[in-house]
Design a protein around this nucleic acid. Structure first.
Lengths: 206, 206
DNA sequence: CCGGATCCGGGTTGATACTG
DNA sequence: CAGTATCAACCCGGATCCGG
């Protein structure tokens, strides 16, 4: 993108991350930690391959992204990770927009990792840490109580989760957010195995 | 802009505010409260007139901007004002980028209103409220202690300020942020009249 | 002068085909 | 798998024009 050429923080930030697709690429790396070119493409339905290549070059030059040891794998630098606050602010602002259902929009299970990170809280941080495995149709996610009242959220599978939640994203998210009871969630095809108490520790926070 | 068509909060937020110029228009309205078409043009050097008209229509349709009684004046709706958190997050992230000086970038005094709002704190919130008039070369700004430890910042002039600070943006900002002493700021052309104690209440906060 | 609308050249994006 | 090459369509910036 052309620079705005304004001595203003917002304008300079947008000079770096204001291009189409750029913040969505950052989202993918925030979710996954690191990702290969084709993993990025998978998580960014609709992006043209030349644009992805372009953007990765720009992000690398800007110092937000670097290549991991395995060269063909990208990851955020600390400067890039600092964008999590920006992505979180946009995500919070967007939450009213998510009440309108997916409609024809593409859905990818791993996109729910960031909202979970942002909104889930642990009611009993002093209790023994708990791990919950979430199995969405196309993605496995691990939730872990962090000990400080927060909950970490990442793609992947845990060795011995305290509980496992299986189902479609809307049902699982409804249950986790407290908008659905376990009974209602089950009616929407959500299955819970393991220790239900681990689930009840979780709540929606600021 | 074309929609990303992704059921993801970030993507839906960017569908609304991800267009070029859109967030800078929001910045202008956050700073000024309300503004006419030509005031917006003045605060957005480089924007093409057709783009500004386009963007204002989009923002109005999206419910972020409305016209004031005087029809020809725009202002943010509450939904639009809620973007202040997003703009603040981007501004914080950009602060390392502002260490590189303006160079050939355009500077407008009123752009400093938002950083002041974001960073300035009142050391003695229980003392009697204080008002400081800032006179930048092209813009007058009023700082007022808010009573809760914060400081409000707006364009305009106060009736009877406790102190007045006159000079170039860099010098004034350096003094307010504590990076320059009064002595150093004076050497850079900053002039202080009135009660210097009002100034010493201010400090840089989180 | 204000608040735009219109037109045009150039740059960016998106879709697809292709390559080491 | 990880991109490059190509090309049409679209968007942006700048200039000009116009009605109140």
């Amino acid at each position: 993108m052309r620079s705005y050429r304004q001595y203003c923080g917002l304008a300079r930030a947008l000079d770096v991350v204001g291009d189409r697709w750029t913040l969505l690429i950052v989202r993918e790396l925030l979710i996954r930690g690191s990702a290969s070119y084709s993993e990025l493409q998978q998580g960014l339905p609709g992006i043209a391959t030349n644009l992805l290549a372009d953007r990765m070059r720009q992000l690398e030059r800007a110092g937000l992204v670097e290549r991991a040891e395995s060269q063909a794998v990208f990851r955020l630098t600390s400067r890039g990770q600092a964008l999590e606050d920006v992505v979180a602010a946009l995500g919070r602002w967007a939450s009213p927009l998510m009440r309108e259902s997916a409609g024809k929009d593409v859905v990818r299970g791993h996109w729910f990792v960031l909202p979970m990170r942002l909104y889930l809280r642990d009611r009993t941080p002093d209790a023994k840490p708990a791990t919950i495995q979430v199995e969405l149709p196309d993605q496995a996610i691990v939730l872990r109580t962090a000990g400080d009242g927060g909950v970490t959220s990442n793609v992947g599978r845990a060795a011995a989760p305290d509980a496992t939640l299986t189902g479609a994203a809307t049902g699982v998210m409804g249950l986790l957010s407290g908008k659905l009871t376990l009974r209602q969630a089950r009616a929407r095809g959500v299955k819970l195995t393991g220790n239900a108490a681990a689930l009840q520790r979780l709540t929606i926070g600021a």
